[in-house]
Every structure is written in structure tokens, then in C-alpha cells.
């Protein structure tokens, strides 16, 4: 045995930078895969378009907003938020496919932490979902909202935060779901109620108690409401409109400011990721 023992090529410059790099490559894989799937990108856009321009126009004639505001203007931020729901949640759940086709193993045996894998998956899913919603966002002018750069940046921020939450939720689910057959029905069972109970398609004002409670328990509500605030603040609303379209959300009688709602979304996301990492660790 003449040759010397070689040290591995692996250059570990501080554990954190290695973990961050791992997160980035897992994230980049999501982007690469999505980029190859143009059909998926387009089909995902169909549903929000139907909601805004078909359902919004159809119902617009019978819905009384309490002023001159177009129902579609009300609908737009809600549909924008739900448009990321599908893409983001499915990105998270795709971990089930990674497991089925073996690739998860390649990631799991690498010298990186499970949290790095999960964060990479979440960031990738969030970027993909947000990127896709930009196409929809470009149509904001068609419902009478000005293209204000500040507004657009704020909306993208909200969408990203929401996407991150939903991807994390999908990842958490996929640490439990073991088969592809189960993944689809379970995710549908989660996504549809989340969409309808978020106030995305109708105002949460004047709801019966049971419905109001479910809405408040739904994290997506706290993505929809801030976005709707941002959009409707662009217009001059009458008091009646404000009351109907922008109802105040209360927790035990306390009116929750929009900023706190967004912080709640962030906190829930962190909790979901932590939980997913833990479940992941215990199930080998």
C-alpha cells in the first residue's frame, strides 16, 4: 500500500456555511425541476384566472360591496394568495415522491442536517410558487388597481411569506405520508378547506360563529387579510365598504393589526419547519 491515505476532498469551511450551501442546492433542485415542467406552470394559472374573471364577473352583478368597488378588486388579493396555495403545498408534498423514487435517500445520507434539507425544500417551493404568482400579479391593473412599485413589492413579500408557510405545511405532511396514492387525497383534503376558510373568496364579515372560528384558525387567513388591506387601501373606500370588505380580525376581543398577522404567519412557519425536522429525524 504505497499511496498515502488521502484526506477527503470535502472542504468544510465552518459548519454553517456548509449547511447553507446544502440548503441552497436542495432549493436549486426545486427550481430546476419546476423549470422543466412548463405545462404544470400554465395549468396552475388556470384556476385563479377562472376565479377572478369568470366567477368574479358572474357574481359581481349580484354582490353589493356597499360602494363603487368592483367585486373583482376585492377578490383579486384573495385569489392571488390561494394561487400560491396549490403550487407551494404540492412542492412540499413532493417529498413523498422523492422518497418513492429513492432520491430522498441521497439527501438523507449526505453529511448535512435534516433541517438544511427541509429549509431547502421550503425555500425552493416558496420561490417557485411566488414566481408563478408574478404572472397573475401582472394582471392587477385589469381590476382597477394602480401599478404602484411599493404595493407590488409588499404583495410579493406577503406571497413569499405565505408560500413558505404552505410549503412547510406540505413538507410536514410528507414526513408522515408514506405513499404517493395517499398524498393526493390528503393534500386535497387540506387545500380545499384552507382555500374556502381563508376569506379569500368572500368577506369574513358577518359570518356565523362556527365559520368565523374556523377562519381564524386557518393560517392562510393571515396571508389573505394583509394582502387585501394593501390592495384596498389604494382606493378610497366608503365606511360601509370598509366595514364589509375589510373586517377587523379579533383574537379574544383584541383587534389584530396586519403586522401581527404577518408575524404570526412567520412564527407558524418556523414551528412547522421545526416540527417537520423532528418528525423526519425520528422516522429514519
Amino acid at each position: 500500500m504505497a499511496a498515502p491515505v488521502r484526506e477527503p476532498l470535502t472542504v468544510v469551511r465552518g459548519d454553517l456555511s456548509h449547511q447553507l450551501r446544502a440548503t441552497w442546492v436542495v432549493c436549486r433542485r426545486e427550481l430546476l425541476r419546476f423549470g422543466k415542467d412548463k405545462a404544470r406552470m400554465l395549468t396552475m394559472l388556470l384556476q385563479p384566472l377562472l376565479f377572478i374573471f369568470v366567477m368574479g364577473t358572474g357574481l359581481g352583478s349580484i354582490v353589493d360591496t356597499g360602494g363603487g368597488t368592483d367585486f373583482r378588486t376585492f377578490l383579486f388579493p384573495g385569489v392571488l394568495a390561494t394561487s400560491v396555495l396549490f403550487t407551494a403545498a404540492f412542492s412540499g408534498i413532493s417529498l413523498v415522491w422523492d422518497r418513492e423514487f429513492g432520491f430522498l435517500r441521497e439527501m438523507m445520507v449526505a453529511p448535512i442536517s435534516r433541517s438544511s434539507i427541509i429549509w431547502g425544500k421550503c425555500l425552493g417551493g416558496a420561490i417557485v410558487a411566488t414566481g408563478q404568482s408574478l404572472i397573475l400579479l401582472a394582471l392587477i391593473g385589469t381590476v382597477g388597481i394602480p401599478y404602484s412599485p411599493v404595493l407590488l413589492v409588499q404583495l410579493v413579500g406577503c406571497l413569499f411569506l405565505g408560500s413558505l408557510l404552505l410549503t412547510a405545511l406540505g413538507v410536514l405532511l410528507s414526513t408522515r405520508i408514506k405513499t404517493i396514492q395517499a398524498a393526493m387525497p390528503i393534500s386535497q383534503m387540506l387545500i380545499m378547506p384552507m382555500m374556502f376558510l381563508s376569506g379569500s373568496l368572500f368577506p369574513v364579515s358577518g359570518l356565523p360563529d362556527w365559520l368565523a372560528v374556523l377562519t381564524k384558525l386557518n393560517p392562510l387567513t393571515y396571508v389573505v387579510q394583509p394582502m387585501r388591506h394593501l390592495v384596498l387601501e389604494q382606493l378610497s373606500l366608503t365606511d360601509v365598504e370598509r366595514e364589509r370588505l375589510l373586517p377587523v380580525i379579533t383574537w379574544f376581543g383584541w383587534s389584530v393589526p396586519v403586522g401581527v398577522q404577518l408575524i404570526a404567519v412567520g412564527a407558524i412557519t418556523l414551528a412547522l419547519v421545526a416540527l417537520a425536522a423532528r418528525t423526519f429525524r425520528t422516522v429514519e
Binding site: T10, V11, H18, W24, V25, A110, P111
Partner: peptide
């Protein structure tokens, strides 16, 4: 490691699979 079960990402190219691995293992 080479497992009994296939663990490649079928949608990526050969080069992309290897690049992914190199990154995960922290190669310069």
C-alpha cells in the same frame, strides 16, 4: 454509497445529479 434501490433524480441530467452530490458534500 450505492444502494440497492435507485436513488437518482430521473428528471435531472447526469451532470446535474453529480453536481448536486458534490455540493451536498461541500466540494470546492
Amino acid at each position: 454509497l450505492v444502494f440497492q434501490q435507485q436513488t437518482l433524480d430521473q428528471q435531472l441530467t447526469a451532470q446535474q445529479n453529480l453536481r448536486f452530490h458534490a455540493d451536498l458534500y461541500g466540494l470546492a
